[in-house]
Design a protein around this nucleic acid. Structure first.
Lengths: 208, 208
DNA sequence: CTTCTTATTAAACAGATGTTTTAAATATAA
DNA sequence: TTATATTTAAAACATCTGTTTAATAAGAAG
């Protein structure tokens, strides 16, 4: 294993703990002791805890968002018509690619995203939409184009229902997998979870 | 407006803040100042913050659970076979009834439930299942009866996906209804929201 | 009234939190 | 080398956390 600098060690420890325990339930002392760095180094390198949280998320978004933009562009540039399944497929690759970026990257990213939407009274939501709002608009219009039979507001609601399903599932994924293990003696990882999630969501959005 | 005792004032302020900000992000000082009571009265009346959280949830569960038990019993006692949509419809009345119990009761209850699953490393989940486990089993078996093609663990996961959809939607219900109003000039209240949710989650749970 | 239980209050407590300071160590450049 | 900038380190800081204490107030019962 290569030697890591302090900044990276902090990010690595922080993303793990933030995903598992949430942002406000993870202290800087817990992060720095896990990262084996000095407490003050967080404020030295990142300024504040809030900026550390944004840096953790940004490291993923900077990989994920351009990749998603690319898959959406490919979908639009092909002059053929596309359906809803193809639009959702644009998400799969950029998401799974995060596992190459970092160990358990897909899982961590989705958990962080879920935490970000639920915790911290929307200042993280603001951070994401102001920095990466374009791709959200692009995705939304792709969904609309793929579902001409659904009204604008119908799509609006069902996309938010879908987002809610994914976000909540990822945020509570540890609790859920723990229950599954104790109740059915069933080992479940995030990839299994996503695989179970897909048919549920697909049936939901194309409901009569 | 009638004069409220200290215990009730604490519960009223606490449920509002817990639903909005989460449990660990809501301090006792914030609760007591909002409730206009002394700080120490929380520990005097409830023992600890943890027990206050349980009391807040219990006040809703004591109304919701018997009502749900009743609607499920009615479904079972009618000798006709029932489908997934009918099972979920058993939830509608008990949930909406909470709006008569407390202002915005439905939304608050579902948000509290969601917070309980995500935060506090499972001690709230333990509290709920040990005190109100029967009705969860009853509902679970009703879902199984309506979906004989699904395995036990498949139902477990899909029910949790459903919970996620509902909880997230309710947690962001204010933002969602505001957007819907400005974008589509569409007035949406909690009741409309739930009626839109039912076909989505019913289709998801019964997915092939 | 007095007595006794219950409820409220202000203050203090011990511990955890994010942040800052000050000094030492390390690296970089001249 | 020396000089300068960057990084690390231990300690202190101020503030916030849940909880407890001890004194007071309120109300009920005899």
């Amino acid at each position: 294993m290569q030697k890591l600098d302090t900044k990276t060690k902090i990010l690595n420890a922080a993303e793990q703990l933030f995903a598992e325990r949430g942002f406000s339930d993870t202290s800087l002392r817990l992060i720095t002791s896990q990262a084996e760095v000095n407490l003050a180094s967080v404020n030295y390198h990142f300024g504040s805890k809030k900026e550390l949280i944004q840096a953790v998320l940004a490291r993923y978004l900077e990989v994920f968002v351009p990749h998603l933009q690319q898959t959406l562009k490919m979908l639009n540039d092909s002059d053929e018509r596309f359906d809803q399944h193809q639009v959702f497929s644009c998400l799969i690759d950029p998401l799974l690619q995060l596992n190459a970026f970092r160990h358990r990257g897909t899982s961590i990213f989705l958990q962080l995203l879920g935490r970000g939407y639920i915790e911290s009274q929307g200042h993280l939501r603001w951070f994401i939409t102001t920095h990466y709002g374009e791709v959200m608009i692009a995705f939304n219009s792709a969904v609309r184009e793929a579902n001409p039979h659904l009204s604008k507001d119908e799509i609006f609601w069902r996309l938010h229902f879908t987002l809610g399903t994914v976000v909540f599932t990822m945020a509570s994924s540890k609790a859920l997998t723990d229950i599954a293990k104790s109740d059915f003696n069933q080992e479940v990882d995030i990839e299994d979870l996503i695989r179970r999630l897909i048919p549920f969501i697909a049936a939901g959005v194309s409901a009569p």
